[in-house]
Design a protein around this nucleic acid. Structure first.
Lengths: 332, 332
DNA sequence: CTGAAAGCGCTTACAG
DNA sequence: CTGAAAGCGCTTACAG
């Protein structure tokens, strides 16, 4: 596949060993003079190192594999930017594999693609692995770490927001804004990750602390999608109880918002919404969605750093409430 | 890095040659009986083939590298899905590289990451390469193809929509809806790709065919972004001339829509909008955006097919007008 | 400072 | 049907 060090050796008269040394910059093992000659020849011939060969002999790789869902998780981009930043600083490469929209088979394909070549580690962006795929991943001797979702299982490492805190803060904020009947919509309570359950726990805690008894009907679980938001709104509308809703993602928030409009409900006058995530989606809808904003860039950066440094502890990144236009103070 | 065929050879008593043959399924070169033994051993030891080694010796690769912009091109997902589909059918792997937000350096990093290992080809998703990076790409002996943008340069292959046709159809549609003063916003006229220029040409053609003289002020170029849409709307508002606008992307359309709302303009009553792209964004805003819808999935599928088959012609994929809520018929 | 040689994990003519 | 051997593009002790 093109020019090799052998070609350069032939061209310059040096041995492949020497060529290899200057091309991989083994300081002290060559004179400046021969370096100049060899580099010139490399440039002239358009040499490109075959990293696969290097990885084969050195038995280590400098590539990080990211596995992402192809589902509409509009925040993966920020996470990836954070990873790239850290990777660049540490002189690592990153490749991305698509795991499809929560299908066992495409998950497996992505995993296999990553595992069947030398990589230094795997970062999984909010992909909730099927049991057999988790087993596959564990059986490989490759470090890995989840980003943006967390687990109870102590053998699984992650960098994520503190989802308990997210549920707690969102609820507390709405209570401070005068709401007492507060919905929680679009979170996944069935998943292997305990993201949804944690948010629910934080939500319940905040309610109880303020003397509010959580009602079962206030909770409309879902899979974090736009349609989950639409469906939840339909259900809330039948009950006519809640005055404010926390949505499991921005997309759930937008679905809910648009369904509310169809039902002739005005947000925030008739109904307040706070979305969890805080990506650009919150800013491009009308009214703009108030959100619990997660620091996705930081998640990516930290996740990459831990992977690169071989650190195995978990970490939480910061969250904050970003006030926009979808929550209204309710006078009692 | 884990179990190798040598380990399996030792375990089973066969030579590495035989192990290799059954593991890579060279039909006719082994008995069913030894296959059973070897496969069992491989499963037991948790063997994972090192494809990098295979690629080194066979001098060919089955991985397709996709290079994408990290910019908010919300349609890349559909393209990638199409590519994955074809790749899976042809038993190829795909890896994705992020080229950042139009920075020469991160483009180069993505390109290098792809080129410094064996790959069968490169697919570039709407990435407008800097001159030096295009040169780098051409100097490698790797087939490549652009997707979703087209070029004049005959050495560059692409699969895209016919942008002339897009400009033409969008304009014709608005004229049929009774509009005569029609804006074109957020398209890039400077880029190396001729996407923007083609759309402009189609637009002008449709205007002229209907006896309308194109006005320079009707054209507000930009970089296909949300902010380009906001800015364009501000400019149009000062002029108060156009009654309908074609936007270079869905995101431009949304930016324009929201800016219009800030200016107390009602879409579609005061102003009609048709967006080019037609991704889910058009459906999650209010009012929903009418669009010239591109078939991104098909672009990806076809692009991958051509790359895999070594076909070098260009191709156009279908477009269609999808009517939603942002264009209103204007009675004359 | 430089070269010859061994070896990373795999495949594949060649011989049997 | 199976094995010994050479080789893909690189790196790195070892010797000089």
């Amino acid at each position: 596949m093109g020019i090799t060090i052998k070609d350069i050796a032939r061209e310059t008269g040096f041995s492949v060993a020497t060529v290899s040394r200057v091309l991989s910059n083994k300081e002290g093992f060559f004179s400046q003079k021969t370096a100049t000659i060899i580099n010139a020849a490399a440039a002239k011939l358009g040499y490109k190192k075959n990293m696969a060969a290097t990885e084969l002999v050195t038995q280590k790789s400098n590539v990080i594999a990211i596995i992402v869902n192809s589902t509409k998780t509009n925040f993966s981009e920020a996470i990836i930017d954070g990873i790239q930043k850290k990777a660049t600083e540490a002189n690592k490469r990153v490749i991305i594999l698509y795991a499809g929209d929560h299908h066992a088979q495409s998950q497996q394909r992505a995993l296999t693609t990553a595992l069947e070549r030398p990589i230094m580690g795997i970062l999984l962006l909010s992909v909730d692995l099927f049991a057999e795929n988790l087993k596959l991943l564990k059986s490989a001797r490759v470090p890995f770490r989840f980003i943006s979702i967390s687990f109870k299982d102590p053998t699984l490492n992650y960098v994520a927001s503190d989802d308990y805190q997210i549920g707690y803060e969102a609820t507390k904020y709405l209570i401070e804004m005068g709401h007492r009947c507060i919905g929680l919509a679009g979170i996944d309570l069935e998943s292997g990750a305990h993201t949804g359950k944690q948010r629910l726990a934080g939500y319940q805690r905040a309610l109880l602390e303020n003397g509010i008894i959580p009602q079962k009907s206030w909770i409309q679980p879902g899979n974090y999608s736009y349609t989950a938001g639409e469906q939840a709104m339909l259900n809330y509308h039948q009950q006519k109880k809640v005055t404010a809703i926390i949505t499991g993602s921005d997309l759930v928030g937008v679905g809910l918002l648009n369904q509310a409009a169809k039902l002739n409900l005005n947000v925030p006058n008739d109904l307040s919404i706070i979305a969890i995530d805080g990506t650009y989606l919150c800013k491009i809808v009308q009214p703009q969605l108030t959100s619990v904003t997660q620091d996705f860039y930081q998640m990516g950066y930290l996740g990459a750093a831990y992977l690169i440094n071989g650190q195995y502890q978990n970490a939480f990144t910061d969250i904050e409430i970003t006030e926009r236009q979808s929550v209204k103070k309710r006078s009692l």
